[in-house]
Simulated assay, not measured.
Amino acid sequence: MKKYLITLHLFMSLSVVAQDGAYSINEDDYGNTSVEMADTMRSNGKIYVVVAVVMTIFTGLIAYTIVIDRKVSRIEKEVFNEKG
Rank of each mutant, 00 (worst) to 15 (best):
Met1His: 10
Met1Ser: 13
Lys3Arg: 14
Lys3Pro: 04
Lys3Tyr: 14
Tyr4Trp: 05
Tyr4Pro: 00
Tyr4His: 13
Leu5Gly: 14
Leu5Asp: 11
Ile6Gly: 06
Thr7Arg: 14
Leu8Asp: 13
His9Glu: 15
Leu10Thr: 15
Leu10Met: 13
Leu10Tyr: 10
Leu10Pro: 02
Phe11Ile: 10
Met12Gln: 15
Met12Leu: 14
Ser13Gln: 09
Leu14Thr: 15
Ser15Gly: 11
Ser15Arg: 09
Ser15Pro: 02
Ser15Phe: 13
Val16Asp: 06
Val16Thr: 12
Val17Leu: 10
Ala18Thr: 08
Ala18Leu: 09
Asp20His: 03
Asp20Val: 05
Asp20Thr: 07
Asp20Lys: 05
Gly21Gln: 02
Ala22Glu: 08
Tyr23Met: 08
Ser24Met: 07
Ile25Asp: 09
Ile25Gln: 07
Ile25Val: 13
Asn26Arg: 11
Glu27Gly: 00
Glu27Asp: 09
Glu27Cys: 01
Glu27Lys: 06
Glu27Gln: 06
Asp28Ala: 15
Asp29Ala: 15
Tyr30Asn: 03
Tyr30Pro: 00
Tyr30Gln: 04
Asn32His: 06
Asn32Tyr: 12
Ser34Ala: 08
Ser34Gln: 11
Ser34Val: 06
Val35Tyr: 06
Val35His: 03
Glu36His: 03
Glu36Asp: 06
Met37Pro: 00
Met37Ala: 07
Met37Gln: 03
Ala38Ile: 07
Ala38Asp: 01
Ala38Thr: 02
Ala38Gly: 00
Asp39Phe: 00
Asp39Gln: 04
Thr40His: 01
Arg42Lys: 11
Ser43Met: 02
Asn44Tyr: 02
Gly45Pro: 01
Lys46Arg: 05
Lys46Leu: 12
Lys46Pro: 00
Lys46Glu: 14
Ile47Tyr: 01
Ile47Phe: 02
Ile47Gly: 00
Tyr48Leu: 11
Val49Glu: 05
Val50Asp: 04
Val51Gln: 05
Val51Met: 03
Ala52Glu: 05
Val53Pro: 00
Met55Arg: 04
Met55Glu: 10
Thr56Asp: 06
Ile57Asn: 02
Phe58Asn: 07
Phe58Met: 13
Leu61Asn: 07
Leu61Gly: 08
Ile62Gly: 00
Ala63Asn: 03
Ala63Trp: 05
Thr65Val: 05
Thr65Arg: 09
Val67Gln: 03
Val67Phe: 06
Val67Asn: 04
Ile68Thr: 09
Ile68Val: 11
Ile68Arg: 09
Ile68Leu: 08
Asp69Gly: 15
Asp69Trp: 12
Arg70Ala: 11
Arg70His: 13
Lys71Trp: 14
Val72Asp: 07
Val72Leu: 12
Ser73Val: 14
Ser73His: 13
Ile75Gln: 11
Ile75Trp: 08
Glu76Phe: 04
Glu76Pro: 02
Lys77Val: 11
Val79Gly: 04
Val79Phe: 12
Val79Pro: 04
Phe80Lys: 14
Phe80His: 08
Glu82Ser: 10
Gly84Tyr: 04
